[in-house]
Design a protein around this nucleic acid. Structure first.
Length: 251
DNA sequence: CGGCAGGAGCCCA
DNA sequence: TGGGCTCCTGCC
C-alpha cells in the first residue's frame, strides 16, 4: 500500500510496509526515459504528445493486483471497476490504518481462490467471478508463474496468459506492459483502436473497425510493435492518454 | 417512475 | 462473426 502526496514541486511517496524509494518502482523512474522518449518520438504524433504531456509515466503494478484489476475491467466503466475493487479489498484484504483512516490492501490470490463464488458475486463482480476464480486458481497451483513470465519473451509470456480463462488479447497486453516488464506490449482497447484507425490508417491492414476481430488484433498488434519498436508500450500510453483527454474523460 | 442503451472484453456456438 | 454475460448509470 502506498501513500502519494502531491506537492508543488513533485510527488512524495510513502509505502506500507516501508520500501525504499517506492516511487522509483511505481513510476518506473529507473527507466532511461530520455532515450525511450527520443526513440518513440520518431513518430511525429507521438513526438508532439511527448512534449504536450511531459511527465507522463508508465505505472508498474504488482502482477496479481494488475491481472485481477483488469479482469474486473471487462465490459464496464471506471466507476464500476473502482466499486468492484473496493468491495473486493474490503471483503478480503488486510486493513491498514493510515492517517487515522482505514484502507484495505489488495487480497492475495490464495485468499481469492478460497473465497466462495457467492461471496465474490456479492462484491458486484457479476459474470466476472468465473474469470477471477480461474486466474486465482492458476496462480495458486503454479501454472501462472509471474516471476517466470518476467524472464520470458513477450510472445511466450503472452501465450501463457492467453491460456487462462477470462484473459484475452487486451488484458494480456495490459498485464504484460504494466506488471511484467514487457515495454513493447501495446494494449488495444476500443479507444486505442479508434485512435489508430484515425491517425495511422496504414497500420492494421487498413481496417477501420472499432471492434477488432482476433485476427485483426494480431495483425495490428504486430504492426504497431514493428512501427514503434521495443518501447511501443510507452507510445501507447501517450496515445491512450491523449485519446481520453480528447474525449473529455480524464478519469 | 420504468425501460432501454451502453460501457477499460471475453467466451462460445 | 454475433450474441450473451452482470451491474450500474444516464437518458428519455
Amino acid at each position: 500500500m502506498v501513500k502519494l502526496t502531491v506537492t508543488d514541486q513533485d510527488v512524495e511517496c510513502l509505502s506500507f510496509p516501508d520500501q525504499e524509494k517506492c516511487e522509483h518502482t511505481i513510476f518506473r523512474l529507473d527507466d532511461q526515459i530520455s532515450a525511450i522518449l527520443s526513440e518513440i518520438s520518431k513518430d511525429p504524433l507521438v513526438s508532439f504528445l511527448v512534449k504536450r504531456y511531459s511527465g507522463l509515466r508508465l505505472i508498474r503494478q504488482e502482477p496479481e493486483q494488475c491481472i485481477f484489476s483488469f479482469v474486473c475491467a471487462t465490459n464496464t466503466n471506471i466507476p464500476m471497476i473502482r466499486r468492484m475493487l473496493f468491495n473486493l479489498t474490503k471483503k478480503l484484504g488486510q486493513a491498514v490504518d493510515v492517517d487515522g483512516m482505514t484502507f484495505f490492501a489488495f487480497p492475495s490470490a490464495l485468499k481469492i481462490s478460497k473465497c466462495s463464488a457467492s461471496d465474490l458475486r456479492s462484491c458486484g463482480l457479476g459474470y466476472r467471478v468465473k474469470a477471477v476464480k480461474a486466474v486465482a486458481n492458476h496462480i495458486v497451483n503454479g501454472s501462472l508463474d509471474f516471476d517466470q513470465l518476467k524472464k520470458s519473451s513477450y510472445e511466450e509470456a503472452k501465450r501463457h496468459l492467453l491460456e487462462v480463462y477470462g484473459i484475452g488479447n487486451k488484458i494480456a497486453d495490459c498485464v504484460l506492459l504494466f506488471s511484467l516488464e514487457k515495454l513493447n506490449a501495446f494494449p488495444i482497447d476500443v479507444w486505442i483502436a479508434r485512435a489508430m484507425a484515425a491517425n495511422y490508417p496504414w497500420l492494421g491492414g487498413s481496417e477501420s473497425a472499432a471492434k477488432l476481430s482476433e485476427r485483426q488484433y494480431a495483425v495490428l498488434s504486430q504492426e504497431v510493435r514493428n512501427y514503434f519498436g521495443r518501447y511501443a508500450g510507452y507510445a501507447q500510453q501517450y496515445l491512450y492518454y491523449h485519446t481520453r483527454q480528447q474525449a473529455g474523460r480524464s478519469w
